[in-house]
Computed example of a mutant assay.
Amino acid sequence: MFFSIIIPLYNRPQEIKELLESLTKQTYLQFEVLVIEDGSKNDAKDIVAAFANRLDLHYFYKPNEGQGFSRNFGFERAKGSYFIIFDSDCLIPPDYLEVVYHRLSNDYLDAYGGPDDAHSSFTAMQKAISYSMTSPFTTGGIRGNKKGIGQFHPRSFNMGVSREVWETVGGFIITRLGEDIEYSIRIHSSGFKIGLIPEAKVYHKRRTSYLQFYKQLHFFGRARINISKFFPQELKLVHFFPAVFTLGLIFTLIFNVLGWRIAWLANSVLIIFILLIFFHSLIKNKSLKVAFLSIGAAFIQLIAYGLGFMQDFWKRIILKQP
């Protein structure tokens, strides 16, 4: 089995250097790498060229269209029987391709997704954000989980599709705002088999500050509404949780300001939530600093997603604006 690894890139030369370095250590060697520079002003051409003698590597520069259409650009030029998509801010464990090869050889999947985790080299902030994005106490609990709610939808930071899927279903039809979930739903609808490969994890660096994380999750909240415009049935009650949490937080503040008796109940629920995040993160990361930062990351994740969700729910579903 020959894999084509497709990596869209936009103004992140240092990230692609670390990602390519991790790919040079793969134990399974039947693969090529396609780096699609999506109209970057700060391009990585020279950095990629430095790996030319260490990887079967192909570099392309194209006008900016967004990550979805950049992946399509890679699909069209890939030689492999199976395409694997990574985000540029990922590090890939040495046995990743070997794990995928053995799974597909023994129990074939037409498309798959894998989980993400924090690497030991990540900063405390990156580990806290990674925790929040994978925590059972936030929206992370319903992402990348074979025991999650509804169909499993691979996410494009760690996703594979067969050439047959590409030739039958096509590629991404939207380039941002939930393009990977929309693509997964179409793959499902075409009768292909999709599953999670739990051992095929990547180390996902994500964002390095609360502000960057807020902007990313606000975008994710808006993306969920965008997906519902294509597939209304995919907007489920669980997707309202961050919005409900955000509204609950606002009402808790109001109750405390007004001195209403119900404030003690709301405060108690909030304290329990904070303690759950803190101790769960402490057990997982074995770091007090990461545990404290995880509290902030969890609140930012839920509030940012909730506000983005409510913003576009009001605009696109209530007001029917495009």
Rank of each mutant, 00 (worst) to 15 (best):
K315L: 04
G191V: 08
H153L: 15
N64K: 12
F2G: 02
S189R: 15
Y10F: 15
D110H: 04
K289Q: 12
N226P: 01
F273H: 14
E234A: 06
I185C: 06
G160V: 00
I197N: 01
P232L: 01
K41W: 10
T252L: 15
I174F: 05
K62C: 09
P63F: 10
E32F: 08
A263K: 13
Q301M: 15
L20Q: 11
F60E: 10
F255Y: 14
F299Y: 13
A297W: 11
P8G: 11
V290Y: 07
F86I: 07
H204I: 06
R261W: 12
F69A: 12
T246P: 04
W166F: 12
A291G: 07
F279I: 08
K147E: 15
S22N: 04
R103G: 00
K62H: 10
E164N: 12
Y214P: 00
L97I: 02
D46A: 15
F220Y: 06
E32H: 10
G141N: 10
Q301Y: 04
Y183S: 08
D117W: 11
A223T: 02
D107W: 00
W260I: 12
H188K: 10
T252C: 14
F31D: 03
K229D: 04
I250E: 00
R207K: 14
H102F: 01
D110R: 04
E167L: 12
K205A: 12
G114W: 03
F172K: 00
Y96G: 00
Q321N: 03
S4K: 01
